[in-house]
Design a protein around this nucleic acid. Structure first.
Lengths: 195, 195
DNA sequence: GTCTATATGTTGATAGAC
DNA sequence: GTCTATCAACATATAGAC
């Protein structure tokens, strides 16, 4: 489909040159079209960003699903989901920064688009609850505050990696290579008391 | 000075509408000028970003210095510097995102500008060493890896706060209010063994 | 339906008049 | 110092060929 071709080019552009470097004219050039022709497929440049946002969300959810298929709800799935999100973000820096930051002035994804990722977030939130109920973590770990802290830790490693050493891999990156240490720090912090 | 007036307007614009919303024409409008006139003061729009970057760095360093003046090198100063950086970032979201992320395609601050902030980072790195030597932290905490993990934690809380709830204060923010919990988690993780 | 041609308004930037 | 004039590239929009 032509729309998907255009999105492929758009994705390549933001990956190579940054989210803010995307223009309608640039996509049109890559497709051998005139810029106005693209307005039959997208309502505006913001519309392209919206489709990219939706595409990124779906791809990320698929990637996390694949990585955690053999897992049961609980702590292990929570941790592996996080690793999967970080690996995907390093491999897709353009889409990742569109998903996790607000790099485009005035761009807000449609609420419906936002909901795609929300299910994944809620599953991780539920994994945290299960972990606390199973005794993998302390009972007080089952809270929105602890969950926000957990997400902020991985988001911090990820954004620092993308900002400071964007060409590195997940395994070798100065920040992403600290992921397991950070996850262990979190798990130890909220470990159940040995009473 | 006219340059500083222009930078005041530029700073207001990126604070109100985001780093990517800054244009030469917008600054000129705010000053009652025509856009070409501004090119007597700045070599380009990237030049404006460069001055904003330098200004943000100087202000942040001053703010951290003020907040830690009564502290000796060591763990307490490291923690209070971090709180100061986060408070300043929430109060100056435009400048902060310019300093800590790479939101402008193609914009890289001059090396000289970058060096201003480097002294502050090095001081915090030294505080981590002192903390380990004094026994406030374990000896193995004195490493670049642990320091990167430390900075990533606060950067994560900060960027999540700015991206998801930008209008909140440091004290009440859903993420920044977790700062002391996160710092304590870090300190406990690298606490000296009770041997 | 899909595209081209064309038009408007805005942007970053330069040259040169006053 | 500030302006006008000017340019190329941009987002956006509409009219109309095929």
């Amino acid at each position: 489909m032509t729309v998907n071709e255009a999105l492929d080019h758009a994705e390549r552009i933001i990956t190579e040159r940054g989210v803010g470097a995307l223009t309608v004219a640039e996509i049109a050039r890559a497709m051998g079209m005139r810029p106005p022709s693209l307005y039959k497929y997208f309502s505006s440049l913001h519309g392209v960003y919206d489709e990219l946002f939706a595409r990124g969300n779906k791809r990320l959810v698929s990637h996390v699903d694949d990585a955690t298929q053999s897992y049961q709800p609980g702590l292990d799935r929570l941790l592996e989901s996080t690793r999967a999100i970080m690996r995907w973000s390093i491999l897709n820096p353009g889409l990742a920064s569109l998903l996790f930051w607000r790099p485009i002035p005035g761009f807000q994804p449609r609420a419906e688009t936002h909901a795609i990722a929300e299910t994944m977030v809620q599953r991780s939130r539920a994994d945290l609850s299960v972990a606390a109920q199973k005794g993998s973590l302390a009972p007080n770990a089952d809270s929105d505050e602890v969950f926000r802290l957990f997400t902020a830790i991985s988001a911090g490693l990820c954004s620092q990696q993308l900002a400071n050493e964007p060409q590195a891999t997940y395994e070798t990156g100065l920040f992403t290579s600290l992921t397991d240490e950070a996850l262990d720090m979190f798990v130890q912090r909220y470990a159940p008391s040995p009473s």
